[in-house]
Design a protein around this nucleic acid. Structure first.
Lengths: 164, 164
DNA sequence: CATTAAGTTCATAATTTTATGAACTAAAAA
DNA sequence: TTTTTAGTTCATAAAATTATGAACTTAATG
């Protein structure tokens, strides 16, 4: 083996703190703790490509925890990996460009809630018109947002193109 | 005591199913199961005002679970209650009109994540300009959305006023 | 004054989530 | 062929979350 006595990944205290903060932020959105911290690490680490072992060591977690976390994030399309011939390891990195998909996904979650509101409206007694009207207002607003957000994305793209 | 041999709250199967679905939806956003189900019940129930006991019975949960759930939801401003003189019970109801606040709150959560991204940018090595640029793009987009969403609310209000 | 009604509190039980370490696999290197 | 590397799998341990029931509180009723 010719290459790569890779210098061991060392993190400053600031980096560690920020990784934790990012981890907690993802955790509070429902992601598993380890997975959130892996994302944090990939955001913060000087090298955007990290191996399985580097992740395991940097976060001081077990190999199984790393394995779980990585596979979850791969499946969620939050990370991906590249390889180099003659090197069996995978080099994981964020799919940062994927924020578009994430954004759309969030909109879909919102839409899912809204379809529940429509079910509520269909099922509710007609004896409470004011109350039903308020639920309808909520549903209508969500529809409105749902309809406008893709436009926002478009406008953003246009501004980008104009600038470059 | 003169009044109110209230007819016992009975739920159809459809209602029960929808309550569960709404409960799960809230649960997946991080709310406690019982709290999510209480919200579901208040959405679905013919009577939008329910007492502590009605909630306990309808959901078949313990008094302490009801107490916890209700207090959490009160504190989160997701429900409120009214009272009638000569009746010690509280009548709980959704703060449906509160979706505005919720919406704003979600935007704030997004903004919180974004400030983490700004921290990341400040801390990252300058050796990876392309990568940093992609993170910056994400942060900029989130800023853009953050700035545009209140405008959406305004536009919605205007449309509303125009209609009525 | 005793009782009931409307809840709250708290210790504990049940469940779920998360992480671990040891054993395993499959491919590459020696 | 043996060893090493890069992981995976699985049984279990540890921790956190949730729900329960019994005892308690506080105000109103009889």
């Amino acid at each position: 083996m010719i290459f790569s006595c890779k210098p061991k990944l060392v993190l400053t205290d600031k980096q560690k703190t920020l990784i934790e903060k990012i981890g907690i932020s993802y955790e509070s959105e429902g992601l598993q703790p380890v997975a959130g911290r892996i994302l944090g690490l990939l955001y913060v680490s000087d090298n955007p490509h990290l191996t399985f072992d580097e992740i395991t060591e940097a976060l001081q977690i077990s190999k199984s925890a790393t394995s779980n976390g990585i596979n979850l994030l791969l499946q969620m399309q939050r990370i991906e990996y590249i390889t180099f011939s003659g090197d069996r390891r995978r080099y994981f990195r964020l799919k940062v460009s994927n924020w578009r998909e994430e954004f759309k996904h969030k909109i879909e979650v919102m839409a899912g809630f809204n379809s529940l509101m429509r079910e509520v409206l269909a099922l509710r007694t007609k004896e409470t018109p004011e109350y039903n009207e308020r639920i309808k207002e909520l549903a209508d607003f969500l529809d409105y947002v749902f309809q406008q957000l893709p436009l926002l994305l478009q406008q953003w793209d246009q501004e980008k193109t104009r600038k470059s």
